[in-house]
Design a protein around this nucleic acid. Sequence first.
DNA 1: TTAATATATGAATACATGATCATATATCTA
DNA 2: TAGATATATGATCATGTATTCATATATTAA
Lengths: 123, 123
Amino acid sequence: MSSSELPCKECCDVTIIHDEIVSDVQAKQLPLEKGNELALLFQALSDPTRLRIIHTLIQAEVCVCDLAAILEMSQSSISHQLRNLRALRLVKHRKVGRMVYYSIDDEHVLSLMEIGLQHISHS
Amino acid sequence: MSSSELPCKECCDVTIIHDEIVSDVQAKQLPLEKGNELALLFQALSDPTRLRIIHTLIQAEVCVCDLAAILEMSQSSISHQLRNLRALRLVKHRKVGRMVYYSIDDEHVLSLMEIGLQHISHS
DNA sequence: TTAATATATGAATACATGATCATATATCTA
DNA sequence: TAGATATATGATCATGTATTCATATATTAA
């Protein structure tokens, strides 16, 4: 429990209390780039509408029109959100005529939803 | 592939294409309340700074001051973010004198981080 | 070809959010 | 007790975001 002059001291005006912990943990830091990517992934899951879309698509492949009906929201809103989910490769689409069918594009999404639901349940 | 007059038609101006899918899936919908809670959880994970804090606390229990030094950010910023994470019971704190030590308060957080990192890696 | 329909998207708006600054609170130390 | 220090927090501001509206695109049907 001693203060010191680690390199960091030169780049921010914060006191360092535990030298070893700071240097140890700093060496194992989450790379900034990974942090940013990971944040984007969770950000895609941070909206109730998008979560309801995902929860729906986990159960069935659904076209945009039906998705809007199921969630009782406008087609435009759903379409915008699907674009977001598509950009992060969380959902994929299949075009049939003028209809577009969306479905889940990643096993990880299922796990994330399950674990997330567990967390909010046992609270 | 037929349109129809399901109840939903009265509450939104969207055409329903697949009757059965819509009614089936609508019956298994994620409750609005659960969707909102789940969104809050993922929202807490949707910021690079908070993810770096969590990644740090997975490795060790760290005081606010050292956290700020490790992440090279202001004490105020870290403290605000910790409040956020605490509100969602993702981290817990232990007070010792004037220092406050934070650590992970949930096994689920570890799983969410791991699965998230898997997703962004194999892409 | 023309009208209808399913989806996508740009612009605008209202709202949420993260960092900073100033300052409050609590604890330690001299 | 007075000053220093670790943390918390309200206010502000700049930025990000979800929905809506209007409209574009693409496909089907008449």
